[in-house]
Design a protein around this nucleic acid. Sequence first.
RNA 1: GCCCCGGUAGCCCAACUGGCAGAGGCAUCCGACUCAAACUCGGAGUGUUGCGGGUUCGACUCCCGCCCGGGGUACCA
Length: 996
Amino acid sequence: MSTSSDQSAAQAPAEAPQEPAFRYTPALAQEIELRWQDRWEERGTFHAANPVGELKGPGGADASGSPYYIMDMFPYPSGAGLHVGHPLGFIATDVVGRFRRMRGDNVLHTMGFDAFGLPAEQYAVQTGEHPRLVTERNIVTYKRQLRRAGLAHDPRRTFATIDPEYVRWTQWIFLQIFDSWYDAEAERPDGGKGRARRIAELREELAAGVRPVPGRDGDNAGGAVWHGLSEAEQRDVLDSQRLAYVDESPVNWAPGLGTVLANEEVTADGRSERGNFPVFQKSLRQWKMRITAYADRLTDDLALIDWPEKVKAMQRNWIGRSTGATVRFDVVGTGEADAAGAAQTVEVFTTRPDTLFGATFMVVAPEHPLLDEVPAAWPEGTQDAWTGGYATPVEAVAAYRREAAAKTAVERQADAGKKTGVFSGHLAVNPVTGTPVPVFTADYVLMGYGTGAIMAVPGGDERDFAFAAAYDLPVVHTVAPEGGLPEGFEGAWTGDGVVVNSPATDVPAGAPADAPVLNGKDVAAAKAEMISWLEAHGVGEGTTTYRLRDWLFSRQRYWGEPFPIVWDEQDRPVAIPASMLPVDLPDVPDYAPRTFDPDDADSSPEAPLGRNDEWVEVTLDLGDGPKRYRRDTNTMPNWAGSCWYYLRYLDPTDGTNGDTVVDPELERYWLGPRHNATSGPAGGVDLYVGGVEHAVLHLLYARFWHKVLYDLGYVTAVEPFGKLFNQGYIQAYAFTDARGAYVPAAEVEGDEQTGWTWDGQPVEREYGKMGKSLKNVVTPDEMYEQYGADTFRVYEMSMGPLDLSRPWNTRDVVGSQRFLQRLWRNVVDEETGEVTVTDEPASTETLRVVHRAIADVTAEMEGMRPNTAIAKLITLNNHLTGLERVPREAIEPLVLMTAPVAPHIAEELWARLGHTDSLAHEPFPTADERYLVEDTVTCVVQVQGKVRGRVEVPPSISDADLEAAALAEPNVVKAIDGRPVRKVIVRAPKLVNVVV
RNA sequence: GCCCCGGUAGCCCAACUGGCAGAGGCAUCCGACUCAAACUCGGAGUGUUGCGGGUUCGACUCCCGCCCGGGGUACCA
């Protein structure tokens, strides 16, 4: 027990008797804070008024002012509780909200809980306690800790994602998605093409023959094909088109977690983001959401929203749109083998169709179907290096496929750059040169991207060049920089330039007579021309591909939303009607998912909900009489609840609507496009603050759901979150002893200069996260007790810019405490408790300081820079501290301006200054221009860019007068030293630079 | 490898469109108060702005090349 902060805290009670009775001590701060928190709650001070419905403002007030919707990424209430890093963003939004409220906005700010998920389930498994009990208990703790921070939330709008009334709507939205398909040609209200439509409309159009039946051949004129299908087949067709659909495909299976996962939840090295378990590809029948239908809109609409470039880039990369062309290569020899005479083709995707003349070989992924049949013998011209030492292509390909399949993602990654592969024995014809080129298989081509096959252009692609070098394949450069490739250039030219060798001067025999001539063109023009040629000859077309895959939506866990789906006797999915929602979680004998050896790739998932037969097997009347059904036993992923909570805050009671997720009028008011002066064309939440770790998970999924709801007409905002802000993290120092074991950070003594010791022994300092195992956790509760919530808030906000991560340092907190103590003393006599403020007018000098501060604080607050705003408040406060008597007209603006960061002490001082109403809705002070102008300005005079003198001048001085004054200044004259003046730069009124 | 952010006093951090390197806090030192100290008040010091070039009358700021720290991403055709 030896750090300075611990001492000061320990001393407080011991010294209390000697302390003035009305000093702003932690104990007094605590008393004030608890009292005001109760008052705010009783008075409904932070009730946000809806324009319609039962939710009114304080005292039943109607909505007034400009709507401003501010939101935090809601927390998952873990059992570990909060540490001082967690509330950083919550306090920041609170400061912004309180500021905006004082500026007259109708501020909506509240907080909910993301409460389904793994930790509660795992804890329940360990203790046998139901996850709901665990979660609800944690929520109580979180609410207490957050309330104690003095957050100005509307308490009427809070909820948790596990609440049955909330689950009901999560399931309802699922049903809307299930009941939709994507019509890529349909026009949207915003003028774009492509939107979700009701599945019934698809059925009608198929029956009417308006469109072909997907997946079925034949002319559907008059609905001929459709009506030729059985009812069951028709259902299969419709089910396959839904935005929420079930299909069998390779998915991410994590045996150690006992569930399947979305691509977004798997790390680059093939492990689960949660728990870090190995993930295997396994073909399983699972629920998916057709997020790929929205790939273009999810990319394009990023341009409409005010988000950090970094997050936009991460989403763009994740969606991975790339434009280019597909090109079909005829496979030599397959034509004769085919009785119909139709040759087999391999389709490749390329972003560089302009380089087709340089495609000297092809590569297909090891899983590519072309390899299912390969020639029995090596064709003529096969080089030894290509065969892998095998006697036939059949053996070589089989061996390579085995090898590739056995490779884990980690091994693949480790081998990246090293090129391995084998010749498949197939030859394919380059459509523009007519030349047969060898088809290789290699694991640097991935089955999951594009077509799983590439045309290899070693002259224009680093990877292809590396492969060509390893297997002695020809290199043709088809693009050269201005002035040609450097002498002796070896490698791939990936830069821009002019097309060459397209075609080459010695045109090979067999080349099509009308092959395009691209030589001399720039890359962009060549691409366009090649694409038209490919399309004209039916051997390819312009194509766009995406990295994004459909969202795997089912999980085999207990603690999540059940699917509102039952399966009928034919094993086809049937939606539970909205009137029967929510579908509650059943009680089961064991919450634990069936988990397996983490490396057991052959295991299969087993859903815990399946353990309650009485729940699974049901008889329901879904409109055609009672029938037997089997419930879907999957649960939704954790992300479902967070996909739409911003809508629930607007309309949390179901009071204004019974049949849609949010009252349309409320949605328009709070979220609609341009709902206030700063809202953009896409609308959405005005300020959404959270960590950057959700950049491609929550934020992508929520955008997707929102766009479906938009298409279906439930919302008018194009995007859910108009402005996003990523706060930094509060990091902490941890200390290790000689053995490398962590020692309690709070007990370490020393500093940067003297070094660090614990218990007399030297220790090493490291920097990183706050965590129990690192023994460096500091909790908000400790801060409330040792300093009070206001001091804690001021410290967190003054540590640095919000978007930067910085180290927590308990011993610095005292600076914030002293600021508030001085502020207190500027109003209240510590001995008597009397208000000492005078009603005499303030001096002009003081008014200047006050109005300067008002102007500066306002600018800093508007720019979301509470750290510099606080610095300005301290400057003003320090000025007032030096006065004999503090004038009311100086202290009142300071108290008001302090309120957003330290609301409790501000309210208390405001009350002691004689005001009966809360200052929460009091107008933020405005600066009087008269006090912002100075009588004189100090003008700096430089000679050769170095400061040599100063002159006091009026701010309105002319350039000529200033120049004359500057050149007359004695030090300047000395510095010029008689040299001829070549030039004088005048920036009136602050600077003159003399060049000699 | 590539992309993004950061590097300013012992520490956390300011510095507008290129114009005096310093707003604020911590720590340190001096003074006042005190029998003495703590608290409080008043005052003070500290710099190769990560390094090397360039542009400019003038660079923390703009450009080029590196170094260090943090984050993201990676055979995506």
